[in-house]
Structures are given as structure tokens and as C-alpha cells.
Computed example of a mutant assay.
Amino acid sequence: MAVFKLLVGLGNPGSEYENTRHNAGAQWIEALARQSQCSLRSEKKFFGEFAKAYIGGEECYLLIPTTYMNLSGKSVQAVCQFYKILPEQVLVIHDELDIPPGTVKLKKGGGHGGHNGLKDIISKLGNNRDFGRLRIGIGHPGHASQVASYVLKKAPTEEYDQIEKTIDESLRYCDDIVRGELSNAMNHLHSFKA
């Protein structure tokens, strides 16, 4: 049985946000959908782009909320309620300021670290923090006052390439991740540097 039934990639909808740092999670899900040969389709009742996929022999669901980042929980909550998915069966893929571009970290549970998408998901899942996180490093601009504009900008080419390589590398371990065989994925990904 799949440990993660729902894989959620965070981002903002609309062409102006495409390929911005904040959309790294959404990019990851788009790449996974291509790899799994399934099509993400707009699903009104889930407030997002949605697909059913078979990963590592397991049936699971892919989701990119189209609610804007700060309301991501509305979309996650809708899918979880419809399919009776528990918070610990959810993996959220998101951009992470606290790790540099070209790095990726995987963990179960934890706080929101100031990430508004995670904050909303935690509140909509009844303050449950047990979901998994795949954190794609985007680096920090250096000062808290610069964070909002930094995450909504496209990364320079070199950084963008590092983020893409991180996405590609972590997708190689997707079967393990979905099945909950996290230690192998963590051992490799936590020492990976694009």
C-alpha cells in the first residue's frame, strides 16, 4: 500500500508566475506527470490541476492547487476529504528558502517555517503537521524584507538549472518515496548537490 497517496506541488497559478522560485513544487508535479504519462486536468471541485497516477506500482493522486499559494490548504483539504486521505499520506513538494539551490531535503512532519502554503495546509488539515515534505532549495535573499519579491521572481539561469537538476534527481527516487521507503531516497538526496 502506498504510504503517500497524494502528492501536492505548491505554486501560484497564471503565466506570470511560471518558472518563479515559488513554483518549484508545481514544476516537480508537472515533471512527474510527464514521467508517469498522465495528464493533469483542471478539477473545479479540488480547486486545482489533478491527475491519477501509478507510481512504483501504487495508485496515487497528483495535485497542483490553483488557489494561489496562501490558500493551498483549501485544495489539499478538498482532495483529502473526497478520497479519505489522511494527513500522513500527503507529500507536499515546495520551495525552501533555508537550503541553497541545487539541494533537496525530504522529511515527515514539522512546522511551516514561515511558508504560507504550508501554513494554510496545516490549518486546513486541522493543525495536523504529519504530512511529508520534499523541500526544493531556492536559497535566501539575505534579509526577511526581501523574501516576498525574491520567491516571486524567476531565478537566474544558473540557479534555475540547479533547481531543475534537483527536480530531475529527486524524481528518480519517486517510487521509493511513494512506497514510504524514505531512507534510501534521503541517503542519496541529502548528499546530492546540483
Results as ranks from 00 to 15, higher is better:
Ala144Gln: 14
Leu134Tyr: 11
Phe192Trp: 13
Leu91Cys: 08
Phe46Val: 03
Phe50Ala: 01
Val178Ala: 07
Gly111Ile: 00
His112Val: 02
Glu164Arg: 14
Leu152Tyr: 04
Tyr173Ser: 12
Lys45Met: 06
Ser36Asn: 11
Gly56Met: 15
Gly25Asn: 08
Leu62Ala: 08
Ile29Met: 01
Val79Trp: 03
His94Leu: 06
Val147Lys: 09
Val79Ile: 06
Gln146Cys: 14
Ile93His: 06
Ala31Pro: 09
Glu159Val: 01
Leu7Met: 09
Lys153Gln: 14
Lys5Glu: 10
His143Arg: 13
Gln146Lys: 11
Gly111Leu: 04
Leu71Tyr: 04
Ser183Pro: 00
Ile138Asp: 10
Phe82Leu: 14
Lys108Arg: 11
Val147His: 01
Tyr17Lys: 02
Glu30Val: 01
Gly25Ala: 10
Gly113Phe: 04
Ala26Leu: 03
Pro141Glu: 02
Arg41Glu: 04
Leu10Trp: 04
Gly132Phe: 02
Ser39Phe: 09
Leu86Met: 12
Gln146Thr: 08
Phe192Asn: 07
Gly11Ala: 09
Pro141Phe: 01
Leu91Trp: 11
Ser39Tyr: 14
Lys105Cys: 10
Ser123His: 05
Ser191His: 09
Lys193Gly: 06
Leu171Thr: 08
Val79Glu: 04
Thr20Val: 14
Leu91Ser: 14
Lys105Met: 10
Glu18Tyr: 12
Ile55Arg: 02
Val3Gln: 12
His190Glu: 10
Thr103Ser: 13
Ile177Val: 08
His188Ser: 15
His112Met: 01
Val178Ser: 08
Ala51Gln: 03
Ser170Gln: 02
Cys80Phe: 05
His112Ser: 05
Lys44Trp: 05
Gln89Thr: 12
Arg34Gln: 13
Leu152Ile: 11
Ser72Asp: 00
Gly109Cys: 06
Lys153Phe: 03
Thr103Asn: 10
Glu159Ala: 06
His190Ser: 10
His22Asn: 02
Leu62His: 09
Leu6Trp: 01
Gly57Ser: 12
Asn127Arg: 15
Arg135Ala: 02
Lys119Ala: 03
Ala53Phe: 09
His115Thr: 01
Asp95Ser: 00
Leu91Asn: 10
Lys74Asp: 00
Leu118Asp: 00
His22Leu: 02
Asp161Lys: 10
Phe82Lys: 03
Phe82Cys: 03
Leu189Pro: 05
Ser123Glu: 12
Val178Trp: 08
Gly139Trp: 05
Leu152Asp: 06
Arg129His: 05
Ile167Cys: 06
Ala51Ser: 11
Phe47His: 03
Glu169Asn: 08
Cys60Asn: 14
Gly111Asn: 01
Pro100Thr: 08
Asn127Val: 07
Gln89Met: 12
Tyr68Gln: 03
Lys165Gly: 09
Asn19Asp: 13
Gly25Val: 07
Glu58Gln: 12
Leu118Arg: 02
Gly139Lys: 09
Gly137Ser: 00
Ser149Thr: 14
Asn187Thr: 09
Lys84Gln: 06
Phe192Arg: 15
Leu86Glu: 07
Asp176Ala: 04
Asn116Glu: 11
Phe131His: 10
His94Asp: 08
Tyr173Gly: 05
Gly110Val: 10
Ile29Asp: 08
Lys5Met: 11
Leu62Cys: 15
Ala24Gln: 04
Lys5Asn: 10
Gly11Ser: 08
Gly139Ala: 07
Gln89Glu: 15
Leu97Val: 07
Lys153Val: 14
Trp28Cys: 12
Gly137Arg: 00
Gly132Ile: 02
